[in-house]
Structures are given as structure tokens and as C-alpha cells.
Amino acid sequence: MKIAVMQFPGTNCEHETLVAVNAVGMKGEIFRWNRPAAELSGFDGFIVPGGFSYQDRVRAGAIASKEPVMDALREEAERGKPIIGICNGFQILVETGLLPGTGKIDMALAQNVMVSGGRVMRRGYYCDWVNLRHDALPKRCSGSFMIDKKAILQIPIAHGEGNLVTTTPGLVDRLKDEDQVVFRYCDPAGQVVNEFPVNVNGSTESIAGICNPEGNVLGMMPHPERAFFAWQLPAYDPRKARPDDPGPGRMVFESMKRFIEVRA
């Protein structure tokens, strides 16, 4: 089961992602953006990891989305293969039109705006551990295939532009109706509160991750590869005392593997 971990100039999470892919029993390989794009057809799944591709020039994800490898990824997505975009990878998939999946740019991940009590508390880059509620049904989406609905995962974020905005009429309602809203920011009890610090970036309806209509392409702002092992968890989390245990982010990679097995 071969997984291509995409690498653009400025990607900086490819090695952690590769470790996570290999640790669940898939065979990961870093795939540089300037390799022949046709070679992507030999892989069973793809991860577009986080970082700052092309230094976020023009806007996050815009330049990478024009690379030939992204055209090839679009073809692989049409074949039903799983693609997971994490953080900058999510931004690239949005700029490519692979998410929310209409083939055109239907939304933007804009600058974070942290609002509380009607006041802007801060803007821009922010990193913290967040709670994510899985809002899709199990098996709806490649990257959350094995995650129960309403399950809560603790996963870190680190981004400046994760605020989902759209001028497409009815898009968010359609995403909800079609079960394409996969993850939402929530409090430790699973309640979605559309205010900072629960909604960490001002994203519309606290949306943290979405999938395409077919469910094989997932984009999420939080970094599951940074919560793959329990030892990566923050000091206040009691699970850190059992460092060899799996971390909550592992389920995303286990899900991808299971999705590929079921699809085969």
C-alpha cells in the first residue's frame, strides 16, 4: 500500500507525516513536486502535508496549486484514491478546486480572526492544542473512515490562514446537508462554540475539516501527525505518561489505510 507524501518547496511536515504513514503499516514515500507527475499513478493514496509551500507567496497554497503534480492528483482523486491535505495541504487542495470538490475555487482559507464577546482578540498566526469533533458519519470520508460520529480528538493547530470563508451562496448548508463537514472545533465536552478560544481561527461554523462529495479527499487544518504518538501530547494530558500509546491523530492515518483496504 504505497502512499505519496507530497513535498513542495517550503513544505515542512513531510517527515513526521512519513513516520505516521509507515507506523500504521502503509509504505510512504516522499514525492517531490518536480518528479514526473505521471509517476503518481503508481501510488494508492496521497497526503499533502503542512508547511509553507512557496513561502505562501501570493496567498497560502496558490502557487503549489498550479504545479503539474496537482493536475495528476486531480486525476487520481477522480479514480477514487484517497487524498488528505493537512494545514497547508488543505489550503493547496482548496486552491486546486479539489475541495470542497466542485472543480473550481469555491471557498477560501482566510487570515485567522479570533473573536470573543464581539471583540477581535487577535488575528493571524496561532498555534495551540484544540479539540476536534468528528461530525461526519464513520466511513463517510477517507481520513476519518474509522472515527465515530461525535468522537473528540485532541490535535494541534499551527496556522495563520485557516478561517473558512465563502461567497458561494448556500455552500456551507450544502456541505452540512451532504455530510461533508468532517471536523469542527469544539470544547472538551464536544460543544461547538463559535467564539475564541474554542473556535480558534474564526472559521465559519467552526469548521476545521471538510471532504469532497465522494469522500475520498479530506482537508483539515489541524495536524494529526503531531498527535500520532502519546508522547507528542501536551504535558497536562495524562496520556503522555504512557508514551508508547497511540495518540489521537493516529486514527486519521489508520482510517486512510482502512479506506484503501475496503476500496481494493
Binding site: R59, A62, E95, T166
Partner: peptide, 9 residues
């Protein structure tokens, strides 16, 4: 085609 994302720019 490149310079804007119409949902914010």
C-alpha cells in the same frame, strides 16, 4: 487565474 481568491479578494 492566480492573483485573487474571489472568496476573499
Amino acid at each position: 487565474g492566480l492573483l485573487i481568491n474571489p472568496h476573499k479578494d
